[in-house]
């Protein structure tokens, strides 16, 4: 009985804190993933529009840079409107984005070089209403810069996504962030097929930090041609590792 009352009190407190936090903020809606277990963990039931999200790879080198890019492209594919993609290095290969539903006609690239240029270009793009989202590839995302991006995203309602491209071991995972959510996308071995060949890629998607929500980890099948993720078929019926990681709820 006491447990239930505690839950209610905590719920009320959360609502009040949320009201204080979002006092002057315009609510821009959310973009659901369409996967119940994933959307349940996110406030509002999806990835917030008009907010900053941070996506990390599993490791520092190029080998781990593909999955975050495709995860982001899958999110963008489900938005409508033009997108600004701020490149750090010229290794992104656009045909792959088309495969997950992000048509290349929607993407404007800005080859801005180092972080010092990427973040201001992103901010400029976010302040301009008319873009659906702005993506930036940056090695570091300092707290102040992140805060600026977040405010800029709130002002226009565009989604801001930062793909972290650290050179060394991603100590970035531990450092504080102004982003509303922080994700980590890692590749997993795909499910074996009955015949030789490659099946749909499989990712371990971790929500490391989420303002107003919990943490979580899920095993998902990578984006399809429309940018949608799916729960892996053979783990759909049982909770995989996430239950253990969802500390305290």
């Amino acid at each position: 009985m006491a447990d239930v009352r505690d839950q209610r009190v905590i719920g009320e407190l959360r609502a009040r804190i949320g009201a204080i936090e979002g006092g002057g903020r315009r609510r821009c809606g959310v973009l659901p993933f369409g996967i119940a277990v994933l959307d349940r963990g996110l406030p509002g039931g999806g990835l917030a529009l008009g907010a900053l999200h941070e996506v990390n790879g599993e490791g520092p080198d190029l080998a781990h840079a593909a999955a975050p890019a495709l995860f982001v492209a899958g999110v963008l594919a489900r938005l409508e409107g033009p997108v600004l993609w701020c490149l750090r290095r010229g290794d992104l290969f656009a045909p792959a984005l088309a495969e997950v539903g992000l048509h290349p006609d929607r993407v404007i690239y800005a080859e801005s070089g180092g972080d010092a240029a990427v973040l201001p270009v992103m901010e400029e793009g976010l302040r301009y209403s008319g873009l659906a989202a702005v993506v930036g590839e940056a090695a570091r995302l300092p707290l102040v810069a992140g805060k600026r991006l977040q405010l800029a995203a709130e002002s226009s309602g565009a989604m801001a996504l930062v793909i972290r491209r650290c050179r060394r071991r991603p100590e970035g995972i531990a450092e504080p962030t102004a982003a509303v959510t922080r994700w980590r996308v890692a590749v997993l071995p795909s499910a074996p097929l009955a015949m030789p060949g490659l099946g749909r890629p499989r990712w371990r998607l971790e929500l490391l930090r989420c303002r107003g929500g919990g943490e979580g980890a899920w095993i998902v099948e990578a984006c399809d041609a429309a940018g949608r993720l799916a729960v892996a078929a053979d783990v759909a019926d049982r909770p995989a590792a996430p239950a253990a990681r969802r500390a305290g709820g």
Binding site: P95, P104, V107, Y109, A110, E111, G113, A117, V121
Partner: peptide
Amino acid sequence: RIGARRLFRLAP
């Protein structure tokens, strides 16, 4: 800010 040449779209 970054120069007109570094803003582009891609075509096949």
